[in-house]
Simulated assay, not measured.
Amino acid sequence: MCITVWDHWCEIETDKVKREKQGYCDKTNVEWESSAPDGFRHYNLTKLTIYGFQPNENFMGYIRHVMEAAVNLENISLHDRKVLKCCEELDPKIKVAPSRYPQTIEEQELLRKQITEGLVMASPHAVHFRS
């Protein structure tokens, strides 16, 4: 399974009236919840790839839920978010948070432990940080 999380800042609509007409809403603190019932197991998923990974509760919790359900998961590849050339010269009113993707081996090891901590069948060796 491959997931791409992408904030394409150079195409973001900033006009409030247009945003409402297009169905956008300004939500903060959105919680990611699993729709799978407790005890659900998936036997075919062996690889999870996430482009745009940031080390926050949403991503970490999501990965943990997948690891609990996908009993044959062997490989988790986590990639930093992508910034396009058109996004580099933004309107200064638009605040772009810097990436918090782990840069050092120590940061990566800490995140591996946090992701797999307490999961019986999870191996920290399955989690890979890709540049």
Rank of each mutant, 00 (worst) to 15 (best):
H42N: 10
D38I: 15
V17T: 13
N75D: 14
I115Y: 02
G39Y: 01
Q22G: 05
M60T: 14
N29V: 03
I50Y: 03
I115S: 02
N58V: 07
W32Q: 05
W9E: 09
A69D: 14
R19V: 05
C2W: 09
K93T: 06
D7R: 09
V120C: 09
E109S: 11
D38F: 09
L90P: 03
L119I: 14
Q114I: 13
E117I: 09
T116G: 02
H42L: 11
M1F: 10
V71C: 10
M121D: 15
Q114V: 12
H8E: 09
L48K: 02
V83K: 07
N56A: 02
N29E: 13
H8S: 08
E68V: 10
K113G: 06
N72Q: 12
L45I: 11
N72R: 08
S131P: 01
A69H: 12
H65E: 15
I12F: 09
R112I: 03
N58H: 07
A36R: 07
K47N: 14
K95V: 12
H65G: 04
C87S: 12
Q22S: 12
L111M: 04
W9H: 13
I76G: 00
L111A: 00
E74H: 14
E68K: 15
V96N: 03
W6D: 13
K95C: 08
K95I: 14
K27S: 12
Y43N: 15
L78G: 00
C86T: 10
A97C: 07
G61Q: 01
A126P: 00
Y24L: 02
V120S: 10
R100K: 11
N75L: 08
V66L: 00
S99Q: 03
I105W: 07
P102Q: 04
N44Q: 12
V127K: 02
P37Y: 10
Y101I: 02
E11I: 11
Q114T: 11
